[in-house]
Every structure is written in structure tokens, then in C-alpha cells.
């Protein structure tokens, strides 16, 4: 088993109201020095067997089709060692 991680983030030009809410909450809690927050999503896919180029290509396709909306989001794919 191996873990493939897909990180999805709102595109920089797209307003991120959730990130803005977090940004607004930080100073209220006494945390200073943060100038911006963007909130994204992380998907951990447990895949059977070796992570081949084929598997990665398939995950890329999943990310582009379902896990992200290319109109408003970007994604990155990377392999993580399973615990």
C-alpha cells in the first residue's frame, strides 16, 4: 500500500472567504504576524501496490475530473510514505 496525496487550493485570483474568516479570527485569538490565509483541501488516497507512472497519471486524472474544479482550483499530486 502507498499513499498518494492530492492538495487542492483555490486559485490565487479567486476570493477565498473561508481563508479570510480564519485570517480575521487569528488576531482576535492573539496571533499576530499573519498577512494572508488560503484554505484548501487535502485528499489522501491509499492505493494498492506500487505507485507507478500509470497510477500517478490516473490520480492526476481523478484530481482534474472530480477532486478539483479547474475553473477555481489548482492541484498538486505527491507520493507519501505510508506510516
Amino acid at each position: 500500500m502507498a499513499r498518494v496525496v492530492v492538495d487542492v487550493m483555490p486559485k490565487p485570483e479567486i476570493l477565498d472567504p473561508q481563508g479570510k474568516a480564519v485570517l480575521g479570527a487569528l488576531p482576535r485569538l492573539g496571533f499576530a504576524g499573519v498577512s494572508d490565509v488560503r484554505q484548501g483541501k487535502r485528499f489522501e488516497l491509499e492505493v494498492d501496490g506500487e505507485v507507478t507512472d500509470e497510477v500517478l497519471a490516473s490520480v492526476e486524472q481523478m484530481a482534474a475530473t472530480l477532486l478539483s474544479n479547474p475553473v477555481i482550483e489548482t492541484f498538486t499530486v505527491h507520493v507519501e510514505a505510508s506510516a
Binding site: I14, L15, P17, K20, A21, V71, I72
Partner: peptide
Amino acid sequence: LPGALIRNDHR
């Protein structure tokens, strides 16, 4: 249809 709908700007 093109575009997308995101969370209201005022949340």
C-alpha cells in the same frame, strides 16, 4: 455552463 459558484463573499 462556464464559470463556478463559490461561497458568498460576506460568508
